[in-house]
Design a protein around this nucleic acid. Structure first.
Lengths: 214, 214
DNA sequence: AGGATAACCAAACGATCGTTTCATTTCGCA
DNA sequence: TGCGAAATGAAACGATCGTTTGGTTATCCT
């Protein structure tokens, strides 16, 4: 059987190394030795080390944005849009876990390259538009600031790279469903609405301080 | 007036550089020139570059954990505990923004030093215990998996370092309140409970594809 | 005042990094 | 089979990094 092209091996080795040690702390020799060649030979495939980073990251970044673009162009109710956007986000993080992790750790926020910040902004704006639809239609009455609510959802989703691992005991679908229930239903799902913010009263410690050692 | 000690200047310069460029991409010369001295002179204050990272990060990491420890030892209702934990988390992120950002970007997940992973695990477990209290008491009926729900909340909170900036137009208190309302009340706050997950039906695009350029 | 100690300068070292160069091998194909 | 291009080997270069060393200046204390 024809083994995958050498280029794919290089990208996968680079992605794994970038995710584990970070881009700056990864040397080209790390990547070269992982695929069994000399670091100078990598330059038959790339022009610079940063080329590797962009090649690793481009695919999932475009895919996750395109999926939200298509979803935004439907006329589904906002609740269903949020549900599908959440599922889509989790699914892409699951099936392209290493690449997506590198994107979130090395691109999002860190580098100010205009191409990527534009994608980040568009993704945020599309999702915020969905939230605003729900606010305007009266469905999302708990939202006082749509942008903050959107960023809260994105934060939960992107933080997955810090604890989720494909193939682990928690399946991506369960996580997506739990996220949806949480954000659409909230922790509290009762007839009576959750009590709103109240003024902070001083904490009175009732149990003795039990120090934990682990 | 006596200016703050040189040590503090060094730590602040290191923290700012670490947050902006990352630990590995920051050179000791960057830090030294920021405080106006030669890089070799830094070794009168440190033993290694990593000492700077730990010194930057230790304060807020211990503070945020201690606050949750104290809160966990009260007998407040779970709803109020979640609210106060969220406020506390946001407040510390606000008042120690640079230090906390370095922690989340360079320590959490990346390095496997047992001291820090133990703190992360304890923080997660304490917060999860609060969520479980709410599940057991029937208040948090939307939670099917307490650990996932807890990680969703932590993700929203920690992702603040990617978009929040102290002194910006959004105040920390507003953000904390919005987060609380979201997680306690959910996006939807109605008499009828949010419809649960439904099977995915194919998306039918109704509007023509409108490509965005920015 | 003066000595001890902290604070800092200035230069250098060895290691490592990204990149370049050129030789050599491997492979597709006529 | 043989040729040209792709792929890799092998070594080296210049730059930069963390760290060390030794000397110099400033500061504090009695």
């Amino acid at each position: 059987m024809p083994r995958p092209s050498r280029w794919n091996e290089i990208i996968e080795a680079a992605a794994e190394a970038f995710r584990t040690n970070g881009f700056a702390a990864t040397s080209l020799e790390d990547i070269a030795s992982a695929v069994g060649m000399w670091k100078g030979s990598l330059y038959h495939y790339i022009n610079s080390k940063e080329d590797l980073l962009f090649a690793v990251v481009r695919g999932p970044a475009e895919e996750i944005l395109n999926q939200l673009r298509e979803l935004s162009d439907t006329d589904l109710p906002p609740t269903e849009k949020i549900r599908r956007a959440t599922r889509s986000h989790v699914q892409i993080l699951n099936s392209n876990f290493v690449y997506a992790s590198v994107y979130l750790q090395e691109i999002a926020g860190r580098r100010k390259l205009p191409e990527w910040t534009a994608m980040d902004r568009e993704y945020l704006n599309l999702l915020e538009s969905i939230v605003r639809e729900g606010v305007d239609s009266g469905e999302f009455s708990a939202v006082t600031n749509p942008r903050v609510a959107t960023l809260a959802l994105i934060g939960s989703l992107n933080w997955l790279t810090h604890w989720y691992r494909p193939g682990g005991s928690l399946h991506a679908d369960e996580i997506a469903d739990q996220f949806c229930d949480l954000f659409l239903g909230g922790l509290i799902t009762r007839k009576t609405k959750a009590p709103r913010s109240q003024t902070i009263t001083p904490i009175k410690t009732t149990k003795p301080r039990a120090r934990r050692t682990a």
